[in-house]
């Protein structure tokens, strides 16, 4: 594998990073909404969000990407693969992050909400100033764990036809007939992205465990 092929992989890597960042940021915003809706205390809203989460957790990401990709076209929104995949991954992330954050919001002791209510804080302040700062801390290891899942998940964009790192690998592999070398390098590039995050997540988890003891 020559320099040119490696640069082509790096160009693909750039899109993998872009997809991950967009999906994570947009997914976080939407995921926060999902988490708040899921803990809103309004029965019908909670049931609906629970269903939303269950659908995304009970079906393959690949299918989710397919349905969004072809579904958007169906309702008249013409998008290129890049945008469609971003939307698909964002929805996927919103459900998973929503569920992770729901768990952390519920893990904040009830007394915190009660104390905030007793101090006559409104819902927004209760959440923004009291509950969420604690919940975010609790959720950090799981959130980082999901970010790693998401980065790996972007590889499925290649099946929909978007040229990110894995598809770049496919293309090169078909050109130079050295699949093991190519996919070895592709795997190493993913590893370099994910492993630091995994280590950081494990570090945080250990830190929280010892802190809560």
């Amino acid at each position: 594998m020559g320099r040119e092929e490696f640069l082509f992989l790096l160009a693909g890597l750039k899109w993998t990073v872009a997809l991950s960042v967009v999906a994570f940021i947009c997914g976080s915003v939407a995921g926060l909404m999902v988490a708040l809706a899921r803990t809103s205390g309004i029965f019908i809203v909670e049931r609906l969000t629970a269903g939303y989460i269950a659908v995304f957790q009970g079906t393959p990401l690949l299918m989710q990407l397919f349905v969004v990709y072809y579904g958007l076209a169906l309702i008249g929104i013409q998008m290129d693969a890049w945008a469609a995949v971003s939307v698909g991954l964002t929805l996927h992330a919103s459900a998973f992050l929503g569920e992770i954050w729901r768990g952390s919001i519920e893990a904040v002791p009830r007394g915190q909400t009660e104390a905030a209510k007793a101090l006559s804080l409104g819902y927004v302040s209760r959440m923004k100033d009291v509950v969420l700062p604690q919940a975010i801390r609790i959720s950090l290891p799981a959130t980082i764990g999901f970010l790693v899942q998401l980065i790996k998940g972007t590889s499925l964009a290649s099946i929909v036809g978007f040229t990110e790192l894995t598809r770049a690998g496919n293309i090169i592999s078909n050109q130079i007939f050295q699949p093991l070398t190519v996919f070895g390098v592709v795997g190493a590039l993913y590893f370099l992205m994910c492993c630091p995050l995994t280590i950081y997540g494990a570090h945080l988890e250990r830190k929280f465990l010892t802190a809560s003891r």
Partner: peptide, 15 residues
């Protein structure tokens, strides 16, 4: 364990 957990399944299955 770390190699598998930090690379996509799609790349693993190709490999």
């Amino acid at each position: 364990v770390e190699l598998i957990r930090n690379t996509p399944f799609l790349v693993q299955i190709f490999f």
